[in-house]
């Protein structure tokens, strides 16, 4: 039983849940994701793992209400259980293979956008615990939409907050902040961007300009998450790759973002239709 151990709303439409999944919790690593199927009729929704606790047998997921399926996940309350939670899926972050010596020579900069801020957390925490220097740039549209600022603040060297409307921290997008930091003399050895596809595209363009290697975590469409369907195909370095098994993290320089964004919208028309069908279920009184 994938029972929801705790639930809290981080913003009016972003929700954090701790879910019981002992096998998953004991094998999860930073960079990996999982798939939730809320109930019998639900979709299989890939979500990045935002934290895991092997001792408690729990994993943390953060969901934003965008469509009918995410609304469905959020409609679950503490004590209720999801039908299915499976993972960990995908490859762990590449830095997990680095030695302590290599890590201590690195200065990472994470560029997190919106919901992508949550999965940045286990990565930053891991790097911090293993002696790497880490800066984190969090971007959100406005102050009320910022998440994970405290958690990240506790595990990184420098936290930079950016809002599009200037309501908190740097006034502007995360990539502008990155440029400003580099202009001020920061020497980042590796960037990692997690967030909306468009944001990762621009983070990559900026990093290319600044000569910083960048890893991006691709949130493609997925069904099984095990390499069985190919819904998650992306072109990386001119070759078709399955994001669920060969990713989700790839070298940003090599990713065909325009194709990835186009492919992400493949079921837009059907989803609109679905939404009409399912409005009724969103506020279901469970």
């Amino acid at each position: 039983m994938y029972t929801i151990l705790s639930k809290e709303m981080l913003t009016p439409n972003i929700c954090r849940m701790k879910v019981r999944a002992p096998r998953l919790a004991s094998s999860a690593k930073p960079g990996q994701f999982l798939i939730v199927r809320a109930d019998e009729k639900g979709e299989r929704i890939p979500l990045t793992i935002s934290d895991y606790d092997a001792a408690q047998g729990s994993v943390t997921i953060v969901t934003q209400q965008i469509g009918a399926s995410s609304a469905d996940i959020i409609s679950f309350e503490e004590g209720e259980a999801f039908a299915d939670v499976v993972g960990p899926l995908g490859l762990p972050s590449e830095f997990l293979t680095k030695s302590a010596e290599e890590l201590s020579a690195q200065h990472y900069v994470f560029i997190a956008g919106g919901l992508g801020t949550a999965p940045v957390y286990p990565q930053v925490k891991w790097l911090h615990e293993h002696g790497a220097k880490v800066d984190v740039i969090i971007g959100a549209r406005t102050k009320d939409l910022l998440i994970y600022t405290e958690e990240l603040g506790a595990v990184c060297d420098n936290l930079h907050i950016c809002t599009d409307d200037g309501s908190c921290g740097f006034h502007g997008v995360g990539t502008a902040k990155l440029e400003a930091l580099v202009a001020a003399g920061e020497k980042f050895t590796q960037a990692v961007a997690i967030g909306p596809m468009i944001m990762m595209k621009f983070a990559t363009l900026t990093c290319k300009k600044l000569g910083i290697p960048i890893v991006v975590s691709l949130n493609t469409l997925m069904v099984d998450g095990t390499g069985m369907c190919g819904a998650c195909r992306v072109t990386v370095g001119g070759k078709t790759r399955f994001a669920c098994v060969e990713g989700p993290e790839f070298d940003g320089y090599e990713v065909d973002f325009d194709e990835a964004m186009r492919r992400q919208g493949q079921y837009k028309a059907e989803e609109l239709e679905e939404k009409e069908h399912h409005v009724c279920r969103i506020g279901r009184g469970k």
Partner: peptide, 8 residues
């Protein structure tokens, strides 16, 4: 139609 997964 009562299941959420889309198909094209």
């Amino acid at each position: 139609s009562d299941y959420m997964t889309p198909i094209h």
